[in-house]
Design a protein around this nucleic acid. Sequence first.
DNA 1: CTGAAAGCGCTTACAG
DNA 2: CTGAAAGCGCTTACAG
Lengths: 330, 330
Amino acid sequence: MRTPITMSDLARRLGVSVATVSNALSGKGRVSPELAETIRRTAERAGYVPSHAGRALRTGKTGTIGLIVPDLSNPLFPTFAQAIERAAKRRGYAVLLADSLDDAAQQAKEISTLLARGADALIIIPRRGTQIDHIPVPLALLDSLATAGNTVASDHRGGGLLIGRHLRELGHRDVLILAGTESSTVAKERMAGMREGLGQDAKVTLVSSPASLQAGLEQGRAFVPGSATAIACAYDTLALGVLSALAQRGIRVPEDVSVTGFDDLIWSEISHPPLTTVRQNFGEIAEIAIGFVTGEIDRGQLVPVEMVTRASTAAPVKKAASTSHLQGAV
Amino acid sequence: MRTPITMSDLARRLGVSVATVSNALSGKGRVSPELAETIRRTAERAGYVPSHAGRALRTGKTGTIGLIVPDLSNPLFPTFAQAIERAAKRRGYAVLLADSLDDAAQQAKEISTLLARGADALIIIPRRGTQIDHIPVPLALLDSLATAGNTVASDHRGGGLLIGRHLRELGHRDVLILAGTESSTVAKERMAGMREGLGQDAKVTLVSSPASLQAGLEQGRAFVPGSATAIACAYDTLALGVLSALAQRGIRVPEDVSVTGFDDLIWSEISHPPLTTVRQNFGEIAEIAIGFVTGEIDRGQLVPVEMVTRASTAAPVKKAASTSHLQGAV
DNA sequence: CTGAAAGCGCTTACAG
DNA sequence: CTGAAAGCGCTTACAG
C-alpha cells in the first residue's frame, strides 16, 4: 500500500496496454465486454485508485469546488458549508474550504489560491458587497443580492415581509428594527421587507449595528420600555442578545415587548422565550449553487423562506396612557 | 486569462529553458542572480501561477490536507475546522473538507476519497471511537483519546477535574453528572475528571444521553429538585438545554441548583445565568495537529484547558430538612 | 550557470 | 477491438 498502484501496473499485470485499461475503466472506448470486465475486476481486487493528479493534468479538471465563507465561527456559515459539501459530494466533487476572515484582501487571496489549486468552480459567500470579477471558472455568489444571474440567495425581502406582516397583524404599530450592518445588502433586504410588511402607518425606528450577539446585548440594554411594542431583528444573533439583555433587566417578552429574529439558529428554539424567526432553506440554496456552477442550471435564483412563529411575539398590551418615557432608560 | 500561462510560455518568451525557469522560480537550482531576477519579474508581470496538478504529478505532493469532521452542524466542529484551516494556510496547505455525517461507513468513504484526491495528510475528528488504520499518509486524530502518538486533544480529564474541584469547593456533595454519550472517550474522560475532582465522599449520579440540546432539555425537564445540588454536564449543549428547561419550570440557577457545562460555546456567555464551563484552546490544538502531520512535531499531545467561572454555580443553599422528594417530579 | 531529457499517471485522437 | 504515441505542466538528476 506504500506506493499506490497505477494504470500501467494494471496493464503490465494483464498484458494489455494502458489505453485499454483506461478505456475499460472509463467505459468509453470500445473494449470487448469480457476484457473490460476482467480489467475492472483486476483493478478492484488490486485496490486501484485513479490518480487525481494525473487525470487533472490531462483533462484540466480537478473535480474540486472552492468554497469561500466569510467566517466559520459565525454560526450561520457552517450550515451553508455543510449543505454545499453535501450537494457537491453527491455529484462527485470535493470541496476546498477557505475562510476569508471577513476581510476583502484575504478573500481576494483565497480566490487566487483556490484558482491556482485548480478549483473547477468557486462558490463564494461574499462579505460587505465585495466586487468579484475576472474569475475564469464558473462562480456562484451565495446569500448576496448582486446583479448578475450567478446569485443564489434566500428571499430575504420576502422573509422580512412575513415578519412585518406578522407583527402588523398582531397589532404592532410602533416597532424598533435592529437592521444589522448598513453595508450588508442582505440586511437591507430583510429590513425593507419588514417595513413593507408593517405598512405605511407604522412608526418604525431603525438602528444599525454589527450582526453580533454582543451588539444585541447592547441594544437590549439600551432599549427604553414603552418606546416600541416590538423589536424586529435582522439576525437571530441580534435577537438572542436582545432577549438576554431584556431578561436581565426584568423586561418580559412578549408581554412588555415582542421580539423577532431571522435565520432560525438551533438556539432560537430554546431561548426565553423561544424566538419567532425566519428559516432559510440551506439545502435548496446549496443544490442550486452547485447545480449552477456545474452547468446543470443556467442561472441562480431566489429561494423561498419560511416563518417560524414561536412565543416571543404576541399582541401588544394596551396601556391606558404611555408610561414614563424615562423609565428604564440607560 | 482564458488559458493559464505555463512555464514553457515563460521559457519561450525569455529564450531560456523551462528547467531554468523552474530553478529560478523555486530558488533551488544554481541560476545567475540577474537571470533569476528577470525570470521572476517576467513571471510576476505575466501573472504566472504554477499548476498544482503538474507539480503534484511530478512530486507526488498536493499541498492539501484532508479534514474529516463528524458533523458541521454541531457548533463545536466549525471552530475546529476554522482553526485547522488557519494553521494549514499558514504553512501553505489548503484544506479539503469532508463531513462524515456522524456515520462510520461514511467516514471510511471520506477517507478513501480524500486519499484518492492526493491529500498529503489527514486530520480526523473521529466519532464513536472508530478504528482507523492502514492510512498511507500522516494522520492526526483530533479530540479523541486514542492510544497512539498521533492524537491531539484537549485535556478533557483535566477540565473535568477543574469542574469537579470547583463544585467541591463550593460545597456540593450531591451531584448529577450528565455524562454524554457512553461510547465517547471524550465524554468518559470529562466525567472521570469530574468524579475525581468531586472527591470520594461525594454522592454522584450518572446519566448518559446524546450530547444534544434536545437531550439537555429532556434532562432538565426530568430533574427532581433537591435530588442534587449541582448538575455537571459533559457538554455545553446539554447544559444549555438543562438551563432552558429549568427556567421554564421556574427552578432557579444557581439558587436551587448549580449547573456547569463544557466547551464554552459563544452562547454560554449569554445564557441565563451565564454558564460556568471549560474552554478548549482550539488554536493550539490545530497548530499541533498540523505541525504533527507536516512532520514539524514528532507526536501529538494533550492541550491544557481553562475553566471559565460564571454565574451558574454557587454554594448550595443549606436546607433545614430535605423538601419533598416528589416535588416537581415529571 | 544553463539546457536536454526523462518521467510523474492519465486520456485522447489516431492507426492498425 | 486493441495499442503506440503524444502530451497535460512540472521537477530533478545529469550533461555540458
